[in-house]
Design a protein around this nucleic acid. Structure first.
Lengths: 225, 225
DNA sequence: TATAAGTTTAAGACTTTTTTAAGACTTAAC
DNA sequence: GTTAAGTCTTAAAAAAGTCTTAAACTTATA
């Protein structure tokens, strides 16, 4: 159950929020000032922060900055001010979203969902990698181009998967070796070159005129753009 | 540079969006229908999707669902409808954020920032060097001027990186040799001159009228101001 | 103008990558 | 446990790209 820190000085609103959250299956914790919130946060375990901007003592903006400086937690700001300057400034200074007061309960819940959806590590999400028409299928350990199976071996698949997960990065042989083989790389090894060559062969067997893997001379390999 | 897929059928709005994005340092790619977008997406490399809900052919909601089913990419929806039902429904069905039309440019940029901030994790690594319009990309070991790749070799990159890391310092040949080659400099060597010449050639191939590397007669080289 | 310093070019040396092929190793089936 | 099929590694030659050298040319300084 996700713990949500509700930073709101108005007791009436705070209770309303907490009730709404509890009813929706979250575990709300109320903080009635920014300083209190900053004391509670290090306790840990929070999945999200709801932050009212108008706070006694420390202004909400400062609280936001301190949360951001210390933790990586989604923060949704509640504010009465809806002018563009305020709201864009808020987003720029670290808020993940904001909601204008008075807000709609359903919308608040939806926005909380959105934030938690991304924070909570992908449960089912075997997001399959796609790049330049290559689709990777982690279930069959194989790659497809336009529906055609490439027939990769395990190492070939792992190399391609690694490279496609960061399509702009150049991977040194060292990188590749340590990630795919998991050991230390002893410079004078041609194994990776051979695997890259085979991989290219299988990819270009499907699509002969496309370059998929680029060599960066003296450095390594990367996915073509 | 982050690639953003702009799915918008109205050419006027699409161009406006692309111009705005380009100006802000993103690389926009326009798709004028949902089906086109779904063809472009497997090409990969996109960091974010801007999706207009009103689309010819396939409705935006379906496009959203298909994107969600296939990839894990932030999607910001642009919509004219602002009723609570529509918007919460949108967020629940996979949108990461939405913006009501007509939207404010700054707000759009701020929201894009928010989404990218979380998707692009620890961009903490080597902050890319910029100077006089040259951007160094340590991932691809190359330099860019206005988005154009220079195609540097390893040594050329290392020289430029060294010089750009202290743009006001004058580097003697000795300095350069010892830093880039790592050995002792034996005065009568022309190698560095040749490399500087090649480097200048590649930079001015992109931007012929700008001087990037200055000669300090009798001493060495430095970045131009 | 003479001289020292910097620039450019082109060719060959050198290094890195690609490809091929053969043998070693793994895996799965019998 | 043996066999068969496929995968991985090693080695070596060929190909491709980069670096260095040397020489001719240009520019700045005294």
């Amino acid at each position: 159950m996700d713990k949500i820190l509700v930073i709101e000085d108005d007791i009436y609103i705070s209770e309303m929020l907490c009730a709404l959250l509890k009813q929706s299956g979250y575990a709300p914790v109320a903080a009635y000032s920014g300083t209190e919130a900053l004391l509670l946060l290090p306790q840990g375990g929070f999945s999200l922060v709801l932050l009212d901007l108008m706070l006694p003592g420390k202004p909400g903006e400062e609280v936001l900055a301190e949360i951001r400086a210390r933790l990586s937690l989604p923060v949704i700001v509640l504010t009465a001010r809806t002018d563009k300057e305020t709201t864009t400034q808020l987003l720029r200074s670290g808020a993940d979203d904001y909601l204008a007061k008075p807000f709609d309960n359903d919308e608040l819940l939806a926005r909380i969902d959105v934030q938690l959806r991304r924070t909570t590590p992908q449960k089912t999400n075997k997001a399959q990698l796609c790049h330049k028409g290559i689709t990777l299928d982690p279930d069959s350990f194989d790659a497809f181009i336009g529906g055609e199976r490439a027939g990769l071996s395990k190492r070939e698949f792992e190399i391609l998967q690694l490279m496609m997960s960061h399509p702009n990065k150049v991977f040194t042989k060292n990188n590749l070796y340590e990630s795919v083989w998991g050991g230390e790389f002893l410079g004078d090894d041609n194994t990776i070159n051979v695997h890259i060559s085979k991989l290219r062969g299988k990819l270009s067997a499907i699509s002969p005129d496309t370059e998929y893997i680029q060599t960066v001379w003296g450095i390594g390999f990367k996915m073509s753009e």
